[in-house]
Simulated assay, not measured.
Amino acid sequence: MKLDIVAGVLNKSRLALSKAITAVENEQEDAVEIMCKLYPHTGNAYVLGITGPPGAGKSTLTDKIAKEYRKRGKTVGIVAIDPTSPYSGGAILGDRIRMLELSSDEGVFIRSMATRGSLGGLSQKTAEVVKLMDAFGIDIVIVETVGVGQSEVDIVKTADTTMVVLIPGMGDDIQAIKAGILEIGDLFTINKADREGVDRLNIEIQMMLELNPKSVAWKPPINRTIASDNQGVVQVVDSIEEHAVYMRESKELAVRRAERIKTEISAMINEQINRYIAKEVINTSGFDNTVKQLQERETNPYAVVDEIVSKVLK
């Protein structure tokens, strides 16, 4: 079956792509083999991360950006990170409901994913899903995050270009700046720009960028949009494309992708080690005895950890 899925993904079968994503999300037995066989076919898609505080209109803007890319002849994949349902553990699917019109376009593939407790609001499986869409042959993969605050910086680990969306008048523009969101932005979009306070927010972003320049060569542009009316979207996509050109010509893209690989490998190693420790150390009767010894102060946590680490490393 896994060979059918792999062949299907490479032959642009949407059903096969859906099955591959489901296999990865649910950690099915054939998930690793599917990823191994498809990995040589990745590295061609350009990944755009869209982040920002809740209520900034990220989903509406994502929808309009995807439509603009379709007008330009590009295929688009959207990974919409939704909050986890407290009942099923699955994505609530709010983003997909807002993008119903796009879902009928054969050149667009939308997948909602649950955060599943991931602190960054970015599912741990996001990187794998991006790779699957990449192997499928999608040109632009948009990862839209849930919008949960400081840990939104996780998007940098997945995206080639990161766009921060802010809106005036919410009182959290400064909060967004404090959260470090400004430091990760390659470009900024002030959405709902018909609201009062848009000029003040523009100036605040500009001032913060001058205090903390990301790159001497690349000055992050600040665009204004009213996404609900499709105003300013063309300029935003133009800015994304300009940044993509800069990333390639400056060789920064290769550097960023190398960092991404390091981060992914590190996370995978940690995950494997954590599973091993949970199975072979924590969930054992011997460890229960160790806990009792710690409660009675017959040993100390530092000695216990040193002993466990020594055994694991052997």
Rank of each mutant, 00 (worst) to 15 (best):
M1N: 11
I5E: 00
V6F: 06
G8R: 04
L15W: 03
L17F: 06
S18V: 04
K19F: 07
A20R: 00
N26M: 12
E29D: 10
D30Q: 15
A31D: 03
V32K: 15
I34T: 03
C36P: 05
K37N: 13
K37V: 08
L38Q: 12
Y39Q: 14
P40V: 01
H41R: 07
T42C: 12
T42V: 09
N44D: 08
A45R: 06
Y46P: 00
V47Q: 03
V47K: 11
G52L: 04
P53L: 13
S59L: 06
S59E: 13
L61P: 13
L61W: 04
T62H: 06
D63K: 09
I65H: 05
E68F: 02
Y69T: 04
K71H: 06
G73M: 00
V76G: 02
V76L: 01
G77M: 03
V79W: 12
A80W: 04
I81F: 01
T84L: 03
S85T: 02
G90D: 14
I92G: 08
L93R: 14
I97Y: 12
R98H: 09
R98N: 08
M99H: 06
E101I: 01
S103P: 10
S104V: 15
D105P: 00
G107V: 08
R111L: 06
R111Q: 09
S112F: 01
M113N: 10
M113G: 00
S118V: 10
S118T: 14
L119Y: 08
G120Y: 02
L122Q: 01
Q124Y: 13
Q124R: 15
K125S: 12
K131Y: 02
L132M: 02
F136R: 04
F136I: 02
V141P: 05
I142V: 09
T145V: 08
V146Q: 12
V146I: 14
T158M: 03
T158D: 11
A159E: 03
D160I: 04
T162L: 06
T162E: 13
M163E: 09
I174N: 07
A176D: 04
G180H: 05
I181H: 00
I184A: 09
G185S: 09
D186S: 05
F188P: 03
N191C: 09
K192W: 09
E196L: 13
R200D: 14
Q206E: 12
L211R: 14
S215E: 07
A217H: 10
A217W: 12
P220E: 03
P220T: 01
P221H: 07
I222W: 05
N223H: 12
N223F: 01
I226N: 15
I226L: 14
S228N: 11
Q235P: 01
V237Q: 02
S239M: 05
S239H: 07
S239W: 05
S239G: 09
E242P: 08
V245C: 10
R257C: 13
A258K: 12
R260C: 10
K262D: 14
S266N: 15
I269A: 03
N270E: 15
I273L: 08
Y276G: 02
I277S: 05
A278E: 11
G286Y: 00
G286S: 06
F287C: 05
F287W: 07
V291R: 04
V291W: 02
K292H: 11
Q293P: 01
Q293S: 14
Q293W: 04
Q295C: 06
E296Y: 11
R297C: 11
E298L: 11
T299H: 00
N300G: 00
A303V: 06
I308S: 00
S310Q: 12
V312N: 05
L313W: 13
